[in-house]
Amino acid sequence: MRLGREQRLVVGGIPRADLLPEEVRAGRRAYATRRALALGVVVALFIAILGVATAKITVTASAAALQAARNQTNSLIRQQAAYSGVTSARARLTSVDAARATATGTEILWKPYLERVGATLPNGMSIVTVQIDSAAPGQPYLQPTSPLQGPRVATLTLHVTTRGLASIQTWLNALPVLPGFVDASAGNVAADAGGQLGADVVVHINAKAYTAASPESASSVRAKSSQGVKPTPTPTPVPVPVVTSTPTPTPVPTVTVTVRPPDDSASTAARASSTKSGTTDAEGDGR
């Protein structure tokens, strides 16, 4: 009888006895365990060999692809060497464009900008002189100390003539259409012997007036100024009759450009001005 099992009393049963030693049964169980372990080792070895083979194949394919890419790169380099002159020319062109963009990044084309200013003038008003004050390239412009005044990069001082005071206010209302406009103010209004009014108008301009940021033409500015002008209720001046027998020569505005030289003290910077003036002679009635 086996020990450890519940012993039951069987009446009339066939007598049996298990005389097989327990060591034999333990040996059989150990053999089955060893056989399972051996099978597991074989399976693990097969998986390891399969992984190594797969990695070897992958490495070989990657090396072949890398060598093909290197061969293609070398071929392209040899083909590119035939156009080395074009490559160097493009590099020089790129450097020149970058240098020009750096040099002209803070430049204002005054001729087209003054044409835009002239496009905002109402009828009967003309510009006599223009003074331009701006900083040298790469140098900061003197900024106002008052927090209510906006930053600026240049200042225009224009002397204008007109027949009526209302035209000056109308023009001031039309100036905000200019690119880079900050503010404008009129002062020193005086009348001459001929009945015309002369005024000095100061216009401040910010960085939006730079060449790259001002693509508008004078015609577009003229159209905007004509749409944006609002009449100001001011007394209408009495028109002065003018009798002319010959065309009056058109006055050419005098433009004075002042560039601030680079200096450590902006308040004591010297100013160099160059004045350009021109006059146009009118022909007789037979023209």
Rank of each mutant, 00 (worst) to 15 (best):
Thr268His: 10
Ser134Trp: 04
Thr170Phe: 00
Pro144Gln: 09
Pro15Asn: 13
Gly40Ser: 15
Ser265Asp: 15
His159Leu: 12
Leu3Lys: 14
Pro151Gln: 09
Gly40Ala: 15
Val96Thr: 11
Ala53Ile: 04
Leu45Asp: 03
Thr102Phe: 03
Arg116Ile: 01
Ser220Leu: 01
Asp18Glu: 14
Leu45Met: 11
Thr161His: 05
Val203Pro: 04
Thr157Gln: 14
Gly124Thr: 01
Lys230Ala: 00
Thr60Val: 05
Arg5Thr: 08
Pro249Val: 02
Ala119Thr: 09
Ala98Gly: 00
Ala82Glu: 12
Thr256Met: 06
Leu9Asp: 11
Val130Tyr: 01
Pro251Val: 03
Leu197Ile: 06
Gly118Ser: 14
Val242Asp: 15
Arg70Asn: 11
Pro15His: 06
Gln79Pro: 04
Thr161Lys: 12
Gln7Asn: 05
Ser274Trp: 05
Arg100Ala: 13
Ala32Asp: 12
Val257Cys: 02
Gln143Tyr: 00
Lys276Ala: 15
Glu115Phe: 02
Ala38Arg: 15
Val11Ser: 13
Leu19Arg: 09
Ala190Phe: 00
Thr268Tyr: 06
Ile168Tyr: 00
Ala53Lys: 03
Thr60Cys: 05
Ser225His: 06
Ile168Asp: 00
His159Asn: 15
Ile57Arg: 14
Val10Phe: 07
Gly228Asp: 10
Leu156Lys: 00
Ile77Asn: 12
Gly278Pro: 07
Arg16Ile: 14
Tyr113Pro: 07
Pro241Arg: 03
Asp200Pro: 08
Phe46Lys: 07
Ala199Tyr: 02
Ala199Gly: 11
Gly228Ser: 15
Thr102Asp: 10
Met1Val: 10
Thr54Gln: 10
Trp110Asp: 04
Thr258Met: 10
Ser273Pro: 03
Ala36Gly: 04
Val189Glu: 02
Val203Gly: 02
Tyr31Lys: 12
Ser134Cys: 12
Ala38His: 13
Thr211Gly: 09
Phe181Leu: 08
Gly180Val: 01
Val42Thr: 12
Gly85Ile: 04
Val229Gln: 11
Tyr31Cys: 11
Leu50Asp: 14
Ala30Gln: 13
Leu148Ala: 15
Thr279Asn: 11
Arg78Trp: 06
Val177Asp: 04
Tyr141Cys: 06
Ala154Phe: 00
Val240Phe: 00
Lys224Glu: 11
Val229Arg: 09
Gly51Phe: 08
Arg271Thr: 14
Leu93Ile: 10
Arg90Phe: 10
Ala193Phe: 09
Ala53Asn: 03
Thr280Leu: 11
Ser167Pro: 00
Ser273Gln: 07
Arg28Val: 12
Val182Phe: 01
Arg116Ala: 05
Arg5Met: 11
Val153Thr: 08
Pro231Asn: 10
Ala38Asp: 12
Thr33Asp: 12
Gly51His: 10
Thr162Cys: 06
Val201Pro: 02
Gly278Arg: 15
Pro15Met: 05
Gly195Ala: 03
Asp285Glu: 13
Leu9Trp: 13
Ser75Leu: 10
Ala193His: 07
Gly150Leu: 11
Thr161Met: 08
Leu76Arg: 15
Lys276Leu: 08
His159Glu: 13
Thr162Trp: 01
Ala38Ser: 15
Asp133Phe: 09
Pro176Gln: 03
Ala186Ile: 07
Val257Tyr: 05
Ala191Thr: 07
Met125Ala: 06
Ala193Leu: 12
Gln227His: 06
Arg70Tyr: 05
Pro239Thr: 00
Pro231Asp: 05
Leu114Cys: 06
Gly85Phe: 06
Ser167His: 02
